[in-house]
């Protein structure tokens, strides 16, 4: 099993989208580990940094579409924190490009799978180049 991809999924958007993906028979990389959160705004930089300390390949934060956060500002704050985490990682020579924020609706299983496929491919390409 390759290094895991941690996907923090908000229960109002990405988590149900992931459920729908499974239900619809859409498949994605097996090394994805979804962690459910009540809002993308619950995630802070320390959670992202701890995941990298553990040695994961990438950390994704998935929340509601911009302007449609169930808790109004949660996804905006998550976006800023992901940017901050990117900078903190770069500061210590780690790959800031391995943490990213995505937005989607709860009824968008295809988008969910597309995001994960993109991330998996990017990691695979980068590993090959090493």
């Amino acid at each position: 099993m390759s290094k895991e991809i941690v996907a923090f999924c908000c229960q109002h958007s990405a988590y149900p989208a992931a459920d729908l993906a499974g239900k619809s028979g859409l498949r994605y990389a097996e090394n994805v580990r979804i962690i459910r959160v009540p809002c993308a705004g619950r995630i802070d930089v320390i959670h992202i940094l701890k995941a990298f300390e553990k040695g994961v390949a990438a950390v994704l934060v998935l929340g509601c579409e911009e302007g449609a956060c169930h808790h109004i500002t949660g996804n905006d704050r998550a976006k800023e924190r992901v940017k901050y985490a990117e900078m903190l990682l770069k500061e210590v020579g780690a790959d800031g490009g391995r943490v990213k924020m995505y937005n989607l609706s709860p009824n968008a299983p295809h988008k969910f799978v597309k995001i994960l496929d993109e991330v998996s491919k990017k990691i695979a390409d980068e590993e090959k180049q090493k």
Binding site: V6, V37, R42, I43, R77
Partner: peptide
């Protein structure tokens, strides 16, 4: 939603079910 728990600079707010420890514990299993 937990926005307050995430932003508190003194880590004074606990959100039962989604505390920092409870989130990080899931990462520890990886």
């Amino acid at each position: 939603c937990g926005i307050c728990a995430a932003i508190c600079p003194a880590k004074a707010i606990s959100f039962e079910g989604y505390t920092d420890e409870q989130i990080v514990a899931q990462i520890e299993a990886l």
